[in-house]
Design a protein around this nucleic acid. Structure first.
Lengths: 224, 224
DNA sequence: TTCTTTCCTGAACAGGTGTTCAGTTCTTCC
DNA sequence: GGAAGAACTGAACACCTGTTCAGGAAAGAA
């Protein structure tokens, strides 16, 4: 007598898994990583605490997958924005400002994903998450260098520094609240994007143009 | 019958307090903030666990004071380096590279002080710590702007971004180990300092000169 | 020396949260 | 419909550390 999972059951299981992940994401978005606790997540997903463990071996795995998921989304958005740009420098500008906008529009989530204290060890997936974004930015810098728009440099290091600058300036503890006022938000995104572009060697005048070009279309994402 | 603390006792109490703080610092330097636990710290300081609570109301207070202490040291070093520089731009370069060197030479401690997960809430003192360094850097940027060496900008934001860039690039999870090789270390410090200077608008050629000028004298600090 | 006050010790306590598991409910198959 | 397997429940468990506190040691006054 072989028990076989019916299509309906498979679907339900998948739905539950998603529900749990979504619940975790909501918790993180609202209260940061510290709010991602098994019991609350289970309640939100309409499941008992024990059930969570039928889908994720441990809390660390749950959070790791959450990080991976959010990271995937962000990477996709960055790629989309950069690919739509007319040239390598524009692509870089678009990538940077996209990260900035994303980070700003979901500050608690962003902070939780990348740096907030968590009681379990999620270092590995955090590193992977960063590596992806940094890799993407680095390759955009590389492209601009190859196109002769930027001086030769350690692109990996530069990309890492750029990410750090964005994060610290936008969601770090010293970041002032800018979400309330859309104009201020745009200014902030422009300012950090400008800093980033200049850092890798874009000439000031040219950088200003690129920033405006990149930030304007991305502005609409803020509400998303 | 008034009990009065003899000079000798006062001295011993002060010594114990310092010993506890020093023990905490050692723990942090060796194993990061997670290694700063009451029991191990007490052992290292040759004290019983309960005694720690005669000197610090709680673990949070202990760590806060540790953060403040380390932060004070770093701020002093930055000021010293910057004040010794010949002009505002050099001062900025010196400040940035000093931070870089400090961070690199005590990576675990630096990471612990500024971002590592801690089970107790030390947000306040972390914010204070950052605010001090950011303020110092910001005022150096400001001076360079006033001197006409840099374009006008939001110096607070710029300083925050600079710090973030340094930290992420040098002690973040993606930072590659550079301590082993002094030459590589110097190169890295130069690279991030260059990035930082360009970010705030120093022209590329001029920046290179400033970097070399700033990094060379600071190099000797690495071993400290 | 003797009494009082302060200081120190370290084992026991406390609290919060991830994890387990025996019992229950649901699903599949004959 | 009923037996067997899978999924779910939620209360109990386990563990880890910060914190406490009664008892003992040391230091100051008399």
């Amino acid at each position: 007598m072989v028990y076989r999972r019916t299509h309906q059951v498979v679907k339900r299981l998948a739905a539950r898994r998603s529900a749990i992940l979504a619940a975790a994401r909501e918790c993180a978005a609202e209260g940061g990583m510290s709010a991602v606790q098994i019991a609350p997540v289970a309640v939100r997903a309409n499941v008992a605490a024990g059930t969570v463990y039928r889908y994720f071996p441990s809390k660390a795995d749950l959070i790791s997958e959450l990080i991976a998921e959010v990271s995937r989304d962000e990477l996709a958005a960055v790629r989309r924005a950069a690919d739509a740009a007319p040239g390598p420098s524009s692509a870089l500008a678009a990538a940077v400002s996209t990260v900035a906008v994303h980070v700003l529009s979901q500050r608690k989530l962003a902070w939780g994903i990348l740096a907030e204290p968590v009681d379990v060890d999620v270092t590995a997936s955090r590193i992977a998450s960063r590596r992806e974004i940094v890799g993407e930015i680095a390759s955009r810098i590389d492209a601009a260098v190859r196109a002769g728009h930027l001086p030769a440099q350690d692109t990996q290091l530069a990309a890492t520094a750029l990410l750090g600058a964005l994060h610290e300036a936008l969601v770090g503890p010293l970041a002032t609240d800018t979400l309330d006022d859309p104009a201020k938000l745009r200014d902030t995104v422009q300012a950090v994007t400008l800093l980033a572009l200049r850092a890798v060697g874009v000439m000031d005048a040219r950088a200003r143009g690129l920033v405006v070009q990149a930030v304007l279309p991305v502005k609409s994402l803020v509400g998303a």
